[in-house]
């Protein structure tokens, strides 16, 4: 289990600590049942970004906007999850203010939309 090197008192190198992102942080976003976008996406964001800007500026420039169902999303009815817990975002609040810290994983669900030809893709 432990090799010689691991027994030294040098603290482990945490390569993705938030300080390494130059004032920004990571935010992951996934869209359930839309596997054409092969994986959740990783965004580089400011903690001071408002949630509305994620929807209005960042996602339209992402892979999500290339999905055929993107224009049909009814944003008032989107269900949000933070990892596995239901989450109610505030459009005008910053990410930091609503607990979306470094490496938070947001999921959106659009129950009316079931992917390409209803296949979940």
């Amino acid at each position: 289990m432990h090799t010689h090197a691991q027994q030294t008192s040098v603290p482990p190198l945490v390569r993705d600590r938030v300080d390494n992102f130059h004032g920004q942080q990571l935010l992951y976003v996934g869209w359930d049942h839309h596997t054409m976008i092969c994986a959740p996406i990783a965004l580089l964001v400011s903690p001071e970004l408002r949630f509305g800007e994620v929807i209005d500026d960042l996602l339209p420039a992402s892979a999500f906007a290339l999905h055929p169902e993107w224009p049909q999303i009814d944003w008032a009815r989107v269900e949000w999850l933070l990892a596995d817990r239901p989450f109610t975002p505030e459009r005008s609040a910053t990410l930091a203010a609503q607990g979306l810290g470094h490496k938070a994983y947001l999921r959106l669900r659009t129950p009316a939309l079931r992917g390409i030809a209803g296949s979940g893709a």
Binding site: V14, D16, R17, G30, A39, A83, H102, K103, Y105
Partner: peptide, 14 residues
Amino acid sequence: TRTSHRQLEHDGDT
């Protein structure tokens, strides 16, 4: 049709 995902917290990071 749903991404498999697990997470854990370690030493203050996710």
